[in-house]
Nucleic acid binder design. Structure first.
Lengths: 348, 348
DNA sequence: TACCGTCAAGCAATCGTTTGCAATCGTGCG
DNA sequence: CGCACGATTGCAAACGATTGCTTGACGGTA
């Protein structure tokens, strides 16, 4: 024994130390130091306590406090993969908002593995996080409600649940895809393929719906042969479904990809068979991840406000943590089309 | 009151519950559940306890445990910016290694702001993290030793301290830069510029040293006019110093950039004045961040094993947490040159 | 039979805060 | 003059786990 706290060094100063120096009882110190209970203690006493605390550089021990109060000023953030710059950006937004209020982030990746997702939720729950922000939600959120319980403090970001039972901050996916279709049609494309993400995710399904609706509105038919869904929003899956598409041999001049990563995969698949973008095939992505403008070719894509997505989700969670009843609030942010060089008129 | 734990739902099952069901004392349950103390309790009793724990789905409360043991099974990870894919990758490596041993990560960005760095260290310290892994270290590590104390459990990753006083996992920067110089010289370049990162960081300084040494070895002189350092490893700084370089008007045919991000900035600056890469100027980066091969042009760069960097740092910290004395161990991983399309022979 | 060593399990203190309740001291009112 | 009441503060019991110490039971040995 002997050794003080974890990574630290000198023995921590406790409430008793402050109490002793201020000549009062620890309980009083606790009350004096706590905004909420401060009115209960005499102004003069409070001053003495504050002075003492200051002098000793007292820092409350969140662990002890957490044991008693069941709160940790820590929130769990669960994302599929930090290497996807979209999520890195969202996390930064979350951090910015929550940091202001003294919250710290416990972050983890799931790689879209439901088992991992469950374990991570549990691990964080055990560590007494006060709430969660997750970008891994399925349309069916059974896993979440099951693990964290019905009265959970959970905010979904970038994805939503079918029944809107959980508060969520997302972008209007359907509208986003509509923008891409409008753009492509305007360029002259008619045979447009859509290779979307997994349909068990709202982002997969809604973008598909938006695509179908947008095509219909313009009186264009959607050849089922030109529709497919990847098993994940990854480069590998993008390449796979694109290869399949090419293999089917039905003609097309443009691809609406599930997201930017899948668009990159498409680029690879096209490259393998000597097709060029945008000369032979136009491609549009979704998300406008950092670096999207630097790729070869620079990606035409739908920009979504990553940072705001994260910051807004953080704000929403804060509201919940303050006890506000946000119910099943759904916040929808606006997407914007960014035209770069991966789209061009179809070859004549 | 009443309400159970933070984000959770149902009242948690405690050690007493298990004890009651197993018909033993809580203390015994504690010992039976703990690998280390298990030998102290009768095998048959242990079985009963394990069964009971299983049946009740008992999960130890890390907060309570932490209060007693001063350990939280949580480690703090501090990086400059998660949006730099290098750090995202390193974090994934750290997570992979630490997760196995039941550790959870508290992650934060500093944006290279020393004040923020200090506050974050303190916030994490207060939360009783067991140790730190930081990618924000300066060559002078006063801040760290000052904040977390002399007997700190800190591992540096990607950067090291001048005096090697803190254990670090890095790549051999000098060797990496040598590879780039060798490559450029072989292509026929003679007037090579180096725009490195901040010299207060080991990665800035060592890459500079490596460059100078490599040039000298080949009997090439380094025109001081072709040397400059950015104030951060960012695209903006890369662009700025490159603009300055161009402004100086001294001829050069290649640039060795401080890292990939700075290389991207250089690309922008060249573009502004109509210079093309690699036709007019060759550029090499450092790190081989994810997507480096997708940029326009695909970046010739030095690949460093991001994931292993993180995983190794995680392993090293684990050793320390187990009480092993790793002293000032410095682990150096090997870099590798990846030739892509941003380098070519100089124009004749 | 008395004594000692060993193995198991129970007891209770402790980690640092929070918080319901009791105690104290004045003071105002009937 | 006695009592109730408000304002402060002290007391001590939690929170859930860990752990040094003690107790008990049992078996072997002298």
């Amino acid at each position: 024994m002997g050794e003080a706290s974890g990574a630290g060094s000198t023995r921590a100063v406790t409430l008793r130390d402050v109490a002793q120096l201020a000549g009062v009882h620890p309980g009083t110190v606790s009350r004096a130091l706590n905004e909420a209970t401060r009115p209960l203690v005499n102004a003069e006493t409070t001053r003495r306590v504050l002075d003492a605390a200051e002098k000793l550089k007292y820092r409350p021990n969140p662990i002890a406090r957490g044991l008693k109060t069941n709160r940790s000023r820590t929130v769990g953030v669960i994302v599929p993969d930090l290497l996807n710059p979209l999520f890195a950006a969202i996390v930064r937004g979350i951090e910015a908002r929550l940091d202001r209020d003294g919250y710290t982030l416990l972050i983890t990746n799931t790689d879209n593995d439901p088992d991992r997702e469950r374990t991570q939720f549990e691990a964080m729950l055990a560590r007494q996080v006060d709430g969660f922000i997750t970008a891994t939600a399925h349309r069916d959120h059974r896993l979440i409600t099951e693990v964290v319980g019905p009265d959970a403090k959970v905010v979904l970001v970038n994805r939503r649940a079918d029944d809107n039972a959980l508060p969520a901050v997302t972008v209007d996916d359907e509208r986003g895809v509509r923008l891409t279709v409008a753009h492509l049609v305007e360029l002259g494309h008619r045979r447009i393929a859509q290779l979307s993400g997994p349909s068990r995710l709202s982002t997969g399904m809604r973008r598909r719906q938006g695509f179908v609706a947008a095509m219909a509105e313009r009186g264009l038919d959607v050849d089922p042969e030109l529709l497919d869904s990847g098993d994940g929003f990854t480069e590998a899956e993008g390449a796979r479904v694109c290869r399949d598409l090419i293999g089917r041999g039905v003609p097309f001049t443009a691809i609406v990809a599930g997201n930017d990563l899948m668009a990159l995969g498409c680029l690879d698949a096209l490259d393998e068979v000597g097709l060029r973008c945008p000369e032979d095939v136009s491609i549009v992505g979704f998300n406008d991840i950092p670096f999207a403008g630097r790729f070869r070719p620079p990606l035409t894509t739908v920009r979504i406000p990553h940072y705001e997505l994260g910051a807004t989700a953080g704000g929403l969670l804060l509201d919940m943590l303050r006890g506000e009843d946000v119910g099943r609030r759904q916040i929808l942010l606006d997407p914007e089309l960014i035209v770069r060089e991966s789209t061009a008129p179809p070859a004549p």
